[in-house]
């Protein structure tokens, strides 16, 4: 009886703590109920909201493809390193994540902008490296790649290497093993890594506002609307931002969980 009571109390305490954390997460959304006057969907500029959504989705999508292509092999490589070699490989990745976004934006603008050697060279080829789609995508890749790599490394590192050994014994080469065994096994972790990178890139403001004020993605458009029309121009974009940012991480998690389910 006593034991049951104790279990019940413990459950109640855990449940209470969980509910408090949930309430904490949801509390700021009460701000959406603030009476700020009629919401302005385009903050006085026709089509600006649709353009910001298009820019954010299209360019972040492209950035994510590059992040996957560049980050997956790096993460796998990192997961196979031990000791000082691992720290050496990880240091630049962590460096990209530790920099405050504003500092990163300034560094990117100085090293890649029109005043830099590389920027001048690319400009001669007709590619603008400041306030352009190129600058937007490069900044997004830089801010999100580290998150993807670290999460994906953990996913690879958590795999049982026996599966890979078995595949190798069955005559599969490195690439075949990676493609047919490692990737499917790590799918759930990779989906989580991609979700993290997506959210990080989509919400990036501090660095992008320096390197690519144009084309304005949703976070910069939020800032423009705040300066242009104040809160009535910000509220609708906030809601839209949530509706757009959430589906991919959710879908990725659900899809990965479903496919992983038969194996578990």
């Amino acid at each position: 009886m006593k034991a049951r009571l104790r279990t019940g109390l413990r459950r109640l305490a855990w449940g209470g703590a969980g509910a408090a954390a949930m309430a904490f997460f949801l509390y700021p959304f009460l701000g959406l109920l603030t009476p700020v006057g009629p919401w302005q969907w385009n903050a006085g500029v026709p089509g600006s909201t649709a353009a910001a959504v298009r820019v954010s989705l299209g360019l972040t999508g492209l950035a994510m493809l590059i992040v996957i292509a560049a980050g997956t092999p790096l993460a796998w490589q990192l997961s196979r390193q031990q000791g000082w070699r691992r720290w050496l490989w990880e240091a630049p990745v962590l460096l990209s994540m530790l920099l405050p976004p504003l500092a990163l934006g300034l560094l990117l603008a100085l090293s890649l902008g029109p005043g830099s050697g590389l920027g001048r060279m690319l400009l001669r080829l007709g590619l603008e490296t400041s306030n352009s789609r190129l600058a937007f995508v490069v900044t997004q890749i830089y801010v999100s790649l580290g998150y993807y790599v670290i999460a994906a490394r953990a996913a690879f590192a958590g795999l049982d290497s026996e599966w890979e050994t078995t595949a190798a014994l069955l005559g599969q080469n490195h690439w075949q093993t990676f493609r047919r065994v490692t990737l499917p096994l790590a799918r759930l972790g990779l989906a989580a890594a991609l979700s993290l990178a997506w959210v990080r890139a989509l919400g990036e403001f501090g660095a992008i506002v320096i390197t690519a004020y144009y084309p304005s993605g949703m976070p910069v458009q939020l800032w423009i609307n705040l300066q242009d029309s104040g809160l009535p121009g910000v509220m609708p974009l906030l809601v839209l931002f949530l509706l757009i940012a959430l589906p991919l991480p959710w879908a990725a998690q659900i899809l990965a969980a479903r496919r992983a389910a038969p194996r578990s």
Binding site: G58, L127, E128
Partner: peptide, 22 residues
């Protein structure tokens, strides 16, 4: 996964998003 992405998808995305714009 990247190996399954055909070149045409990449080209379409790059054109669509205009990253290589002059």
């Amino acid at each position: 996964m990247p190996n399954k992405l055909s070149i045409s998808v990449w080209a379409a995305l790059i054109t669509l998003t205009g990253v290589g714009q002059t």
